[in-house]
C-alpha cells in the first residue's frame, strides 16, 4: 500500500502493469492522430506507405495539404479571432467578478455565488441553444415591432463569442478569485497611508499581483474557446470555426489533412501549456 510497506512481487508487477496500460490507453489516440499526419496515403489508416510532408505543404488535389486548404485555414483564422475576443472579455469580467466576490459584502451573496457557478453545470449544448432561442426572440421582436432586421442577432460569430464567453467567464472568475484571496491587504493599506489614490493602488499594487492569475486564466480561456464544440455548434452561422469545419470533414470521411490540422492543434496547445507553466513559475 506504500513504498515502505513490503509487498509481494506479483502484486508489485501487476500494479505497475495496470498503470502502464492506463497510460497507453490515455496516449494511444493522440499518438495515432499525430503519426498518420505523415502517412503517404489518401486515408488515415494502415498500411503505412512511407513518410511525407504532403499533408501540410502540398498544393494540389487530391493530396491538398493543410496550408493550402482554404476552408481549414479559414477555420483557424475564425477560431483565432473568436478565441481572442472571448479571452479579452472573460479576463475583464472575470477580474471584476473576482473583486466583487472577494472584497464586497452584499445581500444574496451566497445566492449570487451559486448563480456564478451555474454556467459550469449547464451542458454546453443547452447553453448554446438557450442563447440561440433568446437572440431569435429578440430579433423577431424587433423585426415585428420596429421593422429592423438585426442581422447580428442571427446565428454567427457574435453569438458564438457570446455563447463561449457565457461559461468561460465563470472559469476565469474562479482562477482570478483564488489568487485575490491570498492577497495581503496590508500592502494596499501601506500604499493608502503613503498617500496613493484608489486608482493608483489598483494599478501599481493589486493588478500587478493578479497578473499571473489573469494570464493563466487567459491561457485557459483561449484554449477552451479554440477547442469548444458543443456551444459553438448551436450558434454557428456561415463562418465556421475550426472545430466545426473539422467536424464536417470528419463526418464525410477525410484525407489525413485532418490529422495534420489535429497535430497543429496539439502543438498549439503544448505551446500554451508551456506558457502557462512559465506563468505559474513567475508566482
Amino acid at each position: 500500500m506504500l513504498p515502505t510497506i513490503p509487498r509481494s512481487n506479483r502484486y508489485n508487477w501487476s500494479y505497475q502493469l495496470y498503470i502502464f496500460l492506463f497510460f497507453v490507453y490515455l496516449i494511444a489516440p493522440l499518438v495515432v492522430v499525430a503519426s498518420f499526419a505523415f502517412n503517404d496515403s489518401l486515408f488515415p489508416s494502415l498500411p503505412w506507405k512511407g513518410f511525407t510532408w504532403d499533408w501540410f505543404i502540398n498544393d494540389t488535389q487530391p493530396k491538398l495539404g493543410l496550408f493550402h486548404d482554404r476552408s481549414l485555414m479559414n477555420g483557424i483564422g475564425v477560431s483565432f479571432f473568436v478565441a481572442c475576443c472571448v479571452t479579452g472579455l472573460s479576463i475583464a469580467i472575470g477580474t471584476s467578478n473576482a473583486f466583487l466576490f472577494e472584497r464586497y459584502e452584499f445581500r444574496f451573496k451566497q445566492f449570487a455565488y451559486i448563480l456564478l457557478l451555474l454556467p459550469l453545470v449547464i451542458p454546453g449544448v443547452i447553453l448554446g441553444i438557450s442563447i440561440l432561442v433568446f437572440s431569435n426572440t429578440l430579433a423577431n421582436g424587433v423585426e415585428d415591432h420596429i421593422g429592423w432586421d438585426l442581422e447580428f442577432l442571427r446565428p454567427g460569430l457574435l453569438l458564438v463569442v457570446l455563447g463561449q464567453f457565457a461559461f468561460i467567464t465563470t472559469i476565469a472568475t474562479l482562477v482570478i478569485s483564488a489568487r485575490l484571496k491570498k492577497f495581503d491587504r496590508s500592502l494596499e493599506e501601506a500604499a493608502y497611508n503613503l498617500g496613493a489614490s484608489r486608482f493608483e493602488v489598483l494599478r501599481t499594487i493589486t493588478l500587478p499581483y493578479l497578473r499571473p492569475a489573469m494570464l493563466g486564466a487567459g491561457v485557459v480561456a483561449f484554449l477552451m474557446s479554440f477547442e469548444n464544440f458543443n456551444t459553438t455548434l448551436m450558434l454557428v452561422g456561415s463562418d465556421a470555426p475550426l472545430t466545426i469545419a473539422m467536424y464536417d470533414r470528419l463526418k464525410e470521411g477525410s484525407t489525413p489533412v485532418l490529422n495534420a490540422v489535429s497535430l497543429f492543434l496539439m502543438l498549439g496547445s503544448a505551446l500554451l501549456a508551456l506558457i502557462s507553466i512559465l506563468v505559474q513559475k513567475e508566482k
Binding site: P29, V32, S45, L265
Partner: peptide, 27 residues
C-alpha cells in the same frame, strides 16, 4: 501532468484518434 494531457487536446481530436484506431479499416 501526463494525466492532464488529454485535456489540452480538443475532444474532437481525441475522438478522431479513437475512430482511426477502431473503425473497420482502422489500426
Amino acid at each position: 501532468l501526463l494525466c492532464l494531457l488529454p485535456f489540452w487536446v480538443s475532444e474532437l481530436v481525441r475522438t478522431f484518434g479513437w475512430m482511426i484506431l477502431l473503425r473497420e479499416t482502422g489500426v
